[in-house]
Structure formats: structure tokens, C-alpha cells
């Protein structure tokens, strides 16, 4: 195997990993705190992508101005749009749906979020129709780089940067802030936290908003690279599941590792054995579940009589 191919695999893989991480991290945050495997997350991603592609198309695609100004505006659209979606969809789903299901069987909760996903996917179609949206302007504005004769879009590199930034902020928030400590307490033992006077209801809502925001951000930041069309959420959610399972459900470093493992192996498959592209991801997922069901990043617990 030549070095050039290796480089392509590496860069492609890391870009794909960062995309996966952005989507999966929200899923894992919500699972970690609320123990809900949230299928609706796929729709949060779609919403982020659609809103961004729509607004970029409205304000940026044909706009005049310096590259920096337009890029700054695009970034603002991505961020503000994601925050907006995080709050609106987060509150809607958590208060309007999950609130009623916390003491139900976990499978029922998954299925309810599946139903929520179906509903939201159609809401997207109702708002934006079935035609694809293209918003490549930020991608073009950032230009591309030549690495040993291979051309890469600079935008995709910023995605890697964003992933690390998100990981860092989450790590800091969880380990170095008061809110993080409270959150850890809730993760460790919901009942005891409640008894200690922690407002678990509020914590759940805030966590869910953060998770929703992250899902929407993944879609939003990804929008300039892809053709935004029906069905993108369906694909993403199952990939995000794979990432989260591989890393360990509820673990943020796990999501990072899971994303890198899936991203690199998919890139390797695409470039070396294209027919294995999908196979390889789920094969890894299955292997992890078989040998370390709690994921690469979680300890295994034994049952006691």
C-alpha cells in the first residue's frame, strides 16, 4: 500500500470520524444522563442540516462580500440555528414526550423516540419539501489545500477542529464545573440525587437540550458538504448508534474513540475494499458487543445474589 493512499484514508477517516463524533456525542450525553436511547436524534440532525442549508441558501449562497464576512455569517447561522433547534426541539421532545416515559420499560422508550423520529421527519418534509437543498458556498469560500498532490477541502478540516472543541468543552463542563458535578451525581444515582435536593427534572431538561443542540449542530455543520435531502437522518442515527455502542453508551471519550474507530475503518474499506463499506462498521459494532458489551470505555459489572 502506498503512502498517498494511506494519507487519503487517514484524512478521509478523520473527517468522517469528526462528523460521526458530532452526531454521536449528543446521543451519548442523553443516554448517559437519562438512560434513553434516543432515535429522535436522527431527526435533530436532519433539522440542523435543513435549517442551515435553507438559511445559507437564503442569505449566503448568492451574497456579495468578503470571504471572511460570509464565513463568519455562515458560522453564526450554523451556531444560532443549532441553539434555536436545541431549545425548541429539546423542550418539545423532553417535556412533551420523554417526561411521561421515564418509568416505562426501556424498549418502549426507544420505540416512542422512534415514533417521534417518524413524526419529525415528516414535519421536515412539510416545512422544506422533498427537493434537495445545496449550500456549498462556505465550502467554496474556504478553498482547498494541496497535501502532497492531493486536494482536500479546508472546510472539512475545520470539522475536525470543531469536534475537538466540542469534546474539550464537554469534558471541561462535566469535570470542572458545578453543573458537571451535579450531572455526575445524577448519572451515578438518580434517586439519591433527588433525595439530596437536586432538581433532576431540570437537569434532564438541560441535558436533553444540550444533546439536541449537539445533534442539530452535527447536521448544521455537515450541511455545506452534503446534499440535504430526505432520508439523511435515517442513515445517520443508525451510524450514531454504532459509534455510541462501540465507545460505550453514555461515555464521551467513548464516543470520540468510537467515532475514530468507525471513521477510519470505513475510510479504509471505502478505499481498499469498497464492497465492505457498511459491513465493516456493523461488524465492529457486533464484535464490540460480543467481547465488551458495555463498550470499549465502560467497566463490566457483575450481578450479585
Amino acid at each position: 500500500m502506498d503512502l498517498e493512499l494511506l494519507l487519503v484514508i487517514l484524512v478521509d477517516g478523520l473527517v468522517y470520524s469528526s462528523y460521526l463524533f458530532l452526531v454521536a456525542v449528543g446521543l451519548t450525553v442523553i443516554f448517559g444522563v437519562q438512560k434513553v436511547l434516543n432515535v429522535t436524534h436522527g431527526a435533530f440532525y436532519s433539522f440542523g442540516a435543513y435549517l442551515t442549508a435553507f438559511l445559507l441558501g437564503l442569505w449566503i449562497n448568492d451574497a456579495e462580500g468578503s470571504a471572511w464576512k460570509l464565513l463568519a455569517l455562515s458560522l453564526a447561522i450554523i451556531l444560532i440555528g443549532s441553539v434555536f433547534l436545541g431549545v425548541v426541539l429539546g423542550v418539545l421532545i423532553e417535556r412533551g414526550l420523554l417526561k411521561f416515559l421515564y418509568n416505562r420499560d426501556e424498549h418502549i422508550v426507544v420505540l416512542a423516540t422512534f415514533a417521534g423520529f417518524l413524526v419529525l421527519e415528516d414535519v421536515i418534509l412539510l416545512i422544506w419539501g422533498t427537493d434537495p437543498y445545496l449550500a456549498f458556498r462556505p465550502l467554496e469560500l474556504m478553498g482547498s489545500s494541496d497535501i502532497t498532490g492531493l486536494i482536500f477541502d479546508n472546510y472539512t478540516f475545520t470539522m475536525i477542529g470543531l469536534s475537538f472543541l466540542v469534546a474539550l468543552v464537554l469534558w471541561y463542563g462535566l469535570n470542572r464545573t458545578q453543573f458537571g458535578k451535579v450531572l455526575l451525581a445524577v448519572i451515578f444515582d438518580r434517586e439519591v440525587s433527588m433525595a439530596m435536593g437536586i432538581n433532576v427534572t431540570k437537569i434532564f431538561l438541560i441535558t436533553f437540550i444540550i444533546g439536541t443542540f449537539l445533534g442539530a449542530l452535527g447536521g448544521a455543520y455537515h450541511a455545506p458538504i452534503i446534499s440535504v435531502q430526505p432520508g439523511i437522518g435515517v442513515e445517520v442515527i443508525v451510524l450514531a448508534f454504532a459509534v455510541v455502542v462501540i465507545g460505550g453508551m453514555g461515555s464521551i471519550p467513548g464516543a470520540l474513540i468510537g467515532a475514530i474507530v468507525v471513521g477510519l475503518s470505513r475510510a479504509a474499506a471505502v478505499h481498499l475494499y469498497p464492497e465492505l463499506e457498511l459491513f465493516v462498521i456493523y461488524a465492529i459494532m457486533a464484535l464490540v458487543l460480543i467481547f465488551r458489551p458495555e463498550g470499549l470505555f465502560a467497566p463490566i459489572h457483575a450481578r450479585k445474589i
Partner: peptide, 14 residues
Amino acid sequence: ALLNMAFSMILYGV
């Protein structure tokens, strides 16, 4: 639940 899903997606990928 998820291991079943992984296997079904492997078949899908194949």
C-alpha cells in the same frame, strides 16, 4: 436489542 440490530445491518451491508 442492539446486537440484533448490528447483525441485521451487517446483512444489509452485505
